[in-house]
Amino acid sequence: MPPLPSADGFAAGARDVLPLAFGTAVYGLAFGLLAAQAGFSPLQIGVMGVVVYAGSSQIIAVQQAGAGAGIAASVFAGLALNLRLLLITASIHDVYARQPWWKAALGAHLTADENWALLLAARARGRPVGWGYLVGGGALQMATWCGATVLGVVFAAAMPEPRALGMDFAFTAAFLAIAVSLWRGRSDLLPWAVSAAVVFGGVRLLGAPPHWMLAVGGVLGAAVAGLRRDG
């Protein structure tokens, strides 16, 4: 099956991301339920999906805002989680390099874990994929993400009494699942233990605000990982 000239462009990117879009849809629905609980409207969440387009940072920011953390702490937590995107776009910087500025900007905005990984995998198999492939996958992912999150918010509005149903625990369970998916092996143990200990210590012993200890704990854990030689 010899590929057509356009086969590694926009359509191929969208097609390859399709199996992953199912997972994105379910994740988006779950996020929508959480966002509704934190007091966000379908419109706000739809706009957020388009302009932010970074799932786990949206979850953390929405949860923090819902818990009364204030704008600065919520934004800080979300952005800290997104710093890794710097490494992701930097690792494929050649894709944006020969494009006009608006195409480079659009491509960068649409870069997420899924289409980035697919691009690297396709290149590893010798396919000449580039900007079109990245943007095709990203566009389908964004449409799926926004549709599912808005649907989740709308559904949640029909639910009675979130706390009585145990919905307040949904965030904790969601973060546990995300943590497990981010576990890379034993080298994570010490940084993670440091993060958790800093949060407990800071809040319990020093009486520091939990919303800020979250950031301090995360950054100190990451610093431990960075300073270790075996990391």
Binding site: S56, I60, Q63, A77, A80, L81, L83, R84, L86, L87, F171, T172, F175, L176, I178, A179, L182, W183, R184, D188, P191, W192, V194, S195, A196, V198, V199, F200, V203, P210, H211, M213, L214, A215, G217, G218, V219, L220, G221, A222, A223, A225, G226, L227, R228, G231
Partner: peptide, 19 residues
């Protein structure tokens, strides 16, 4: 680079700790 790679996991763990 190691710190940036480790940051998401550490933040999520810190978040579970706060909750």
């Amino acid at each position: 680079a190691r710190a940036l790679t480790a940051l998401p996991g550490c933040l999520i763990v810190a978040l579970v700790a706060t909750s």
